[in-house]
Amino acid sequence: MSNCVYAVDEDCRTTVWTYQKDVEDGILDPFQPDDQLKKKKKISFVRRRRDVYRALGPGSEAESAKVLAFGTLFTAPYKGSESYIDIHEARKDPRIQSVMQKTEFLPFVPEILEAGKEFALQKIKAPFLCAQLRLLDGQFKNHWKGTFLVLKQKLESLKLNGPPPIHIFVMTDLPMSNWTGTYLGDLLKDSDAFKISVLRGDDNLIVETANKLMDIARGKNLESVSKRSYTVDNHCDPQSFTDILLYVEQTVCSCASLGFVGTTGSTIAETIELMRKYKACSG
Results as ranks from 00 to 15, higher is better:
166 I>L: 09
178 N>D: 14
184 L>D: 09
208 E>K: 10
211 N>G: 06
224 S>Q: 04
188 L>D: 13
222 L>R: 08
216 I>L: 12
226 S>Q: 12
229 S>Y: 02
256 A>Q: 08
191 S>D: 06
252 V>Q: 04
233 D>V: 01
173 D>C: 12
244 I>Q: 07
204 N>V: 05
214 M>P: 02
170 V>D: 05
239 Q>H: 08
241 F>H: 12
173 D>P: 11
238 P>C: 07
254 S>L: 07
177 S>E: 15
179 W>S: 08
228 R>N: 05
231 T>I: 10
215 D>I: 08
253 C>G: 09
240 S>H: 09
199 L>N: 04
249 E>T: 06
205 L>P: 07
229 S>V: 12
235 H>F: 08
159 K>T: 10
210 A>R: 14
172 T>R: 12
254 S>P: 05
248 V>L: 04
230 Y>D: 01
244 I>L: 04
202 D>S: 07
200 R>H: 06
226 S>P: 00
178 N>Y: 12
238 P>F: 06
253 C>Y: 06
197 S>G: 01
187 L>V: 07
217 A>E: 04
173 D>L: 07
186 D>T: 13
213 L>F: 00
232 V>M: 10
256 A>K: 10
249 E>G: 05
166 I>K: 08
219 G>Q: 10
251 T>Y: 00
222 L>D: 06
232 V>I: 13
210 A>Y: 01
179 W>T: 15
180 T>D: 12
202 D>A: 05
251 T>R: 13
243 D>R: 15
169 F>G: 06
205 L>T: 10
226 S>A: 11
192 D>C: 00
168 I>A: 07
224 S>R: 05
234 N>M: 09
180 T>V: 10
248 V>K: 06
208 E>H: 11
213 L>E: 01
216 I>A: 07
224 S>I: 01
226 S>R: 13
236 C>K: 15
178 N>P: 05
196 I>V: 15
204 N>Q: 08
178 N>Q: 15
161 N>A: 11
243 D>Q: 12
234 N>H: 10
208 E>V: 03
169 F>L: 06
250 Q>S: 10
180 T>I: 15
225 V>Y: 02
180 T>H: 14
227 K>M: 01
233 D>Y: 09
243 D>I: 13
197 S>F: 14
160 L>N: 03
219 G>S: 05
202 D>L: 03
210 A>P: 05
238 P>A: 07
160 L>E: 12
244 I>K: 11
160 L>Y: 02
248 V>P: 02
241 F>S: 11
233 D>I: 02
218 R>S: 09
164 P>T: 01
239 Q>T: 09
251 T>A: 11
248 V>N: 09
255 C>K: 01
213 L>Q: 13
216 I>W: 09
161 N>E: 14
243 D>F: 04
191 S>K: 13
189 K>S: 13
235 H>Y: 11
221 N>H: 03
195 K>T: 09
205 L>D: 02
215 D>C: 03
217 A>Y: 06
159 K>C: 09
187 L>R: 08
194 F>S: 02
212 K>F: 02
191 S>L: 00
199 L>Y: 03
197 S>H: 15
200 R>G: 03
173 D>Y: 08
175 P>A: 07
188 L>E: 15
167 H>V: 05
203 D>P: 03
210 A>L: 08
230 Y>E: 05
200 R>C: 04
231 T>P: 00
216 I>Y: 03
223 E>P: 01
247 Y>N: 14
204 N>E: 10
213 L>G: 02
205 L>H: 10
173 D>T: 12
186 D>Q: 15
